[in-house]
């Protein structure tokens, strides 16, 4: 269970069902009770604030969004959940990392010492990947202009994904609240770039490919609009599902280990080493997925921006 226990949930949580879950942890080591517990801990749980209200609204999704626009409850809108709680150290680490790299860059520049070393070297490797292999390769030389945005997206996703691999932490990207919002940010930014570059009229017109028969135009336009609006959703769900599923897999094999140790049987003697092996293999695979998903998320961002930039050409 080590990989999936949401540590902060223990102190802060006030929900009765959560407390019950912890009580049961001490006594029951049956597979089903542990999996139920895992399912609970991987669910999005508010850590403080109007918890019952949130959990209740959860059942009716539309009312959640509408109630959030009540400015009176601004503070409650910043309630952390078990996922966004872990987003904070990831963001903090990200900022500290790049601030350290920035000061190293400043010092090196002031000394005209161009030999890359230390933290700056690591940061430059990342920056070069995003700026060279994602921005410039996808968008051409002008792509470097959009590096600050794409880089912010890439490093945010990367740091969250990676932090989720350190046992008590959950990935900040393991919840749709995070990934969908970042999908929306990408959606707003790439459409904004497209409109700024082409003008609203030409940008909208680009949704209908040239040579479309007149009667088909409204349908094609509608389809294009739908496909554009699907982009943030697919971006969000792809990343969320990868991170969430990875942690479910880790959790399941960790539960196998725990149950096999607690209720030792001949079957357990076979299951335990295999589950432990899977735990190790999946850890490595999760590291790979963490980097891969960050890459996919940001390269799609670059592709969308590129499409918006050259909207008038097709």
């Amino acid at each position: 269970m080590s990989g999936t226990t949401a540590e902060p949930a223990e102190g802060e949580v006030t929900a009765t069902e959560e407390v019950e879950g912890h009580g049961g942890e001490e006594q029951e080591y049956t597979l089903s009770s542990r999996i139920e517990h895992l399912n609970h801990e991987l669910s999005v749980l508010a850590l403080w604030g109007p918890l019952e209200e949130q959990q209740a609204e959860h059942a009716e999704p539309m009312s959640v969004v509408s109630s959030s626009w009540n400015l009176g409850s601004l503070a409650s809108n910043f309630t952390l959940t078990n996922y966004t709680f872990w987003m904070m150290p990831a963001v903090l680490l990200l900022v500290l990392f790049f601030m350290a790299a920035r000061s190293a860059a400043k010092v090196s520049l002031a000394k005209a010492d161009y030999v890359p070393k230390g933290i700056l070297n690591v940061a430059e490797a990342g920056v070069d990947l995003v700026r060279g292999n994602i921005c410039t390769d996808v968008m051409g030389p002008e792509g470097a202009k959009y590096f600050p945005f794409v880089g912010t997206v890439f490093f945010f996703v990367l740091f969250n994904n990676l932090l989720g691999n350190i046992p008590p932490a959950l990935p900040g990207t393991g919840t749709l609240g995070t990934t969908f919002l970042w999908g929306i940010i990408v959606f707003v930014v790439y459409n904004g770039i497209g409109i700024k570059k082409n003008g609203l009229g030409r940008y909208m017109k680009s949704f209908i490919p040239s040579g479309t028969p007149g009667a088909m135009k409204p349908l094609i336009f509608l389809l294009e609009i739908v496909s554009h609006f699907l982009r943030p959703i697919t971006l969000g769900i792809r990343l969320y599902a990868n991170m969430y599923a990875g942690h479910i897999m880790l959790g399941v094999f960790a539960i196998f280990c725990a149950v096999a140790i607690k209720n030792f049987t001949p079957v357990g003697a076979v299951v335990l080493p295999l589950s432990f092996l899977m735990q190790v293999v999946l850890r490595a695979f999760e590291l790979f997925v963490a980097v891969l998903q960050a890459y996919i998320f940001s390269i799609l961002t670059a592709v969308y921006i590129n499409g918006a930039l050259h909207a008038a050409e097709h």
């Binding site: 959860h58 809108n77 987003m87």
Partner: peptide, 18 residues
């Protein structure tokens, strides 16, 4: 279904990070 409180925290995170 995304939970609204997470959206706001993330928006703040994006603004700060950017």
């Amino acid at each position: 279904i995304p939970i609204s409180v997470e959206l706001f925290v993330n928006l703040a995170a994006f603004v700060v990070l950017f």
